[in-house]
Write a protein that binds this DNA or RNA. Sequence first.
DNA 1: ATTTTCCCCTGCCGGC
DNA 2: TGCCGGCAGGGGAAAA
Length: 281
Amino acid sequence: MPELPEVETVRRQLAPRVTGRRIAEVRVVDPLLVSPLDPDEFAAAVTGRVILALERRGKYLLARLDDGATLGLHLRMTGRVHLHPGAPDPAAVRFLRAVVTLDDGAAVTFADQRRFGRMWLIPAGTDEERYWRGRVGVEPLGPAFTARRLGELLDGRRVGVKAALLNQALVAGVGNIYADEALFAAGIHPERPAGGLDPGELRRLHRAVREALRRGLSSGGASIDSYRDAMGNRGTMQDALRVHLHEGDPCTRCGTPIVKGRVAQRGTYWCPRCQPRAVWR
DNA sequence: ATTTTCCCCTGCCGGC
DNA sequence: TGCCGGCAGGGGAAAA
């Protein structure tokens, strides 16, 4: 479940090793990875290109290439990107989907158990603002994400606030884990209507989202299930989670057992006392 | 326009 | 022991 902190961790590790490198070879092991593109055409389009920069937008990784095109990459649920200083042994990488070999002999592998992950090309000359509109919203760790902006994004929405946080077109990069943690820290029930938060709650939520993501980032991400960083190491954020996966455990703030339910089609954890469903004012 | 539902995939796990 | 339904949750498309 790579979310913003996990993807950014991978990006930071990978960037210094791939920037300025030429792509020597691309081997697509599983055609589904680049679908609906043709694997051979995809490989041909990328081979020989120099990677100018490795960026992140929400949960997307973007490799800027020297012909103006961009190699997009999304880990979805179980995708793993791993950097190998030398040639990797393909048999040693479980669920291997692709190998990108660089001109210094290093290789980046893409492995993915559930095969939801994708790699694709954004052609040179694409209007990216338009490309991302409706798909990826404001960066929650960037300067544009303010409490006021959050309020504008949620204004008028009747869906639960958790569903709104998971909507990538609004705030980019928040997934199930960090949504639960942020809502707990803000003391807001996940099913409160998104448009019904008062200014104080918006401020708390804004702050909580940023803090949850920052903590995830500084602990190298949450390795609950399959996530590993680009070096194959686990993060430690899973040990710092306060409600997510803590059903039945006493709330760290009030001792009330954490409950689990289904919100926005996702397993959702919250403290029934610290995050009341109804607010009276 | 917004919201909801379904779908894509595979491995794992609890229940019977 | 073995089978099987349910679950995991990322995003996108289709339906409401």
